[in-house]
Design a binder for these strands. Sequence first.
DNA 1: TTTTACGTTGACGTAAACGTAAAGCTAAAC
DNA 2: GTTTAGCTTTACGTTTACGTCAACGTAAAA
Lengths: 131, 131
Amino acid sequence: MNKNKTYSISDLSQRFDITTRAIRFYESEGLLSPNREGQKRIYSKKDYITLKLILRGKRLGWSLAESRELIQMYNPKQDNEIQYQKVLEKVHESRERLQQQLHDIEIMLVELDEHENRVNTELKGLTKGSP
Amino acid sequence: MNKNKTYSISDLSQRFDITTRAIRFYESEGLLSPNREGQKRIYSKKDYITLKLILRGKRLGWSLAESRELIQMYNPKQDNEIQYQKVLEKVHESRERLQQQLHDIEIMLVELDEHENRVNTELKGLTKGSP
DNA sequence: TTTTACGTTGACGTAAACGTAAAGCTAAAC
DNA sequence: GTTTAGCTTTACGTTTACGTCAACGTAAAA
């Protein structure tokens, strides 16, 4: 539908709850390249989507450099197709990290339980032993 | 059993695959406090466990400051008990982040699929349309 | 006794991802 | 016409988590 919708920088910053400084920084790092209207940056739907990708990457713990790589794959320069393989690798990596994290969380909960039980046992011992 | 086992700093660094610099840094940040034998640091089983906690926290995306807080809770100073509530909060936080990340990964995979299909469709169109 | 290995304390350097002014342009509102 | 709102570039500052020397101590091995 409204594929031609455009956004100002403050507009985007509000929608994504980030600062305009961050958005300009992403551009300076080669992740975004909005059109201009005079001096002003005009962001397209495509830029919007790219920004969404950037933030998603951040949540997954990717560096901006990594995201840039993937974004450039999503924006193939006519001659070279998108390299699914590399994207899938990154996704796989992230998933494995998550796997490890879930394991870490489980362990923490188990250890907390153990600790709690230990403390309770000690308390019982105290009560029993106190004259 | 061997609760009195001790470790040198390079010993720990090898076991955990981190640098001695990192270990000293954790100490300077108040996360570790090994005994000394003259100048040399002697790490106990407790220090070993603390270090394991630190690294686990790192994998979960916690800052050293956050981990320090939790570690201090694990080492209650006689008068104050461990505050499970806070630890559980942190764990809960981490788990929610993981939830979001899993969602992000799903979306990425779906979008990759869509993209792939789109490309294939375009290719078919090209083949059909070419005279 | 001189390497060699391992440890110590400074102290400065670094990378990533922005934060935080400063100073100026521009267009609409009052 | 000047205030206000929003945008621009430039540039230095900040935080976290160490890395990377340098210069020195100690103790065992060759």
